[in-house]
């Protein structure tokens, strides 16, 4: 299950499938390259900016929570062909943690390719059953009295977490706040915090 290289037979199967589809005129190298470039462009900066803006602008926050897809479009992300985006708001009493126990549903349009661990059997099986133990493995300990709401992403939506704005960010600009938010914060395995070490995957 580790992130190992593909087997030789898998490389061969891909080459044969691509060749057969091209021979029949069903796909072209250009189309594949366009899709790849578009997948490569998607990254957590988009989601981070959506979060930062929500911390500053109440109207944006309301839009984000009401219609994540429209909010992403407003950020210049084409959501056509993407599943609808839902945004779940952390409060002083409830923290959200997103997992997909059945496969690997993930809001790729606004945070990019899912990391390997998100798709792993360990995360998928454990996050719903012992979320606090999984959070601890990410170094995340919730404040006393905060409940965990595990979000099993089972169907048509893709979910991102809108974390609480951390203390010590009063007066920060949108850019400063954006730089604070990581991919993992938007999955809910970590919480944004001022002064934490360089994020693992900004």
């Amino acid at each position: 299950m580790a992130n190992q290289p593909p087997r030789a037979e898998s490389l061969a199967l891909l080459a044969k499938l691509e060749a057969a589809l091209k021979r029949r005129g069903i796909v072209s190298d250009e189309e594949i390259e366009l899709k790849r470039a578009s997948a490569d462009r998607a990254n957590p900066m988009t989601g981070a900016r959506m979060v930062a803006r929500a911390w500053i602008d109440p109207e944006w926050r309301a839009l984000l929570l009401r219609d994540g897809t429209a909010a992403a479009e407003a950020m210049g992300i084409s959501m056509r062909g993407n599943p609808p985006l839902g945004v779940l708001e952390d409060t002083a009493g409830v923290h959200h943690l997103v997992v997909c126990t059945l496969c690997s549903c993930y809001p790729r349009a606004i945070i990019g390719y899912p990391p390997h661990w998100y798709k792993s059997a360990a995360y998928r099986s454990r996050a719903v059953r012992e979320p606090r133990a999984v959070l601890a493995e990410f170094g995340t300990v919730l404040p006393a009295g905060m409940q965990v709401r595990v979000v099993d992403s089972t169907a048509d939506f893709r979910w991102m977490v809108l974390p609480q704005r951390p203390a010590g960010t009063e007066g920060w600009t949108e850019d400063q706040l954006t730089a604070l938010v990581t991919r993992d914060d938007m999955v809910g395995v970590t919480l944004p915090r001022v002064g934490r070490r360089e994020s693992r995957a900004a």
Partner: peptide
């Protein structure tokens, strides 16, 4: 996979990203 006991003791490979 939700709750599958087979992976109960498998750590999440958080660096594998």
């Amino acid at each position: 996979l939700g709750g599958n006991p087979r992976f109960r003791c498998t750590p999440v490979e958080i660096e594998d990203d």
